[in-house]
Amino acid sequence: MYDLNDVVEMKKPHACQTNRWQIIRMGADIKIKCLACGHIVMMPRREFQKKMKKILVKASEQ
């Protein structure tokens, strides 16, 4: 399961051609930030769970 500050990979890459996102807010909605260009996207938790591919780095391991 994902947690705050985890780095995740989404199914589709961002427009800047990278696919590393950091979870910066969790609740009913989840806010993620692109680690390459800094773009922030907010989406409902259900949509996030559908679009997330895998967890790359757990926050507890950093």
Rank of each mutant, 00 (worst) to 15 (best):
N19E: 09
K53T: 05
M42V: 13
Y2V: 12
M1L: 10
D3Q: 10
E47Y: 05
E9A: 13
K33F: 02
I55W: 00
E47R: 11
K31L: 06
K51H: 07
I32N: 05
C34E: 04
Q22D: 07
N5I: 03
E47W: 03
M1R: 10
R45K: 15
D29Y: 11
G38M: 05
N5T: 06
Y2D: 04
V8R: 06
V57M: 11
P13A: 09
F48M: 01
V7R: 07
A36P: 06
M1G: 14
I30T: 13
Q49M: 08
L56E: 00
V57C: 07
Y2T: 09
K31A: 14
I23V: 13
H39S: 10
M52V: 15
C34K: 02
R20H: 13
M10A: 12
D29L: 11
H14C: 15
S60L: 01
C34Q: 05
H39P: 00
I23R: 05
I30L: 10
D6Y: 02
R20K: 14
Q49L: 11
T18Y: 10
N19H: 06
L35P: 00
I40H: 04
H39G: 00
I32E: 01
G27Q: 07
K31S: 15
E9W: 04
W21G: 02
G38H: 06
E61Y: 04
E61T: 14
D29P: 01
L56V: 07
D29N: 15
A36V: 05
A36L: 13
S60Q: 08
R45L: 08
E61F: 03
C37F: 08
D6K: 07
D3A: 12
C37W: 08
K11D: 09
L35N: 09
L4R: 11
V41G: 03
L56Q: 02
K53V: 03
M10T: 10
K51E: 14
A36I: 01
I32W: 03
D3K: 13
E9C: 12
Q49R: 12
D3R: 13
F48G: 02
C37D: 09
Y2Q: 09
S60Y: 04
F48S: 01
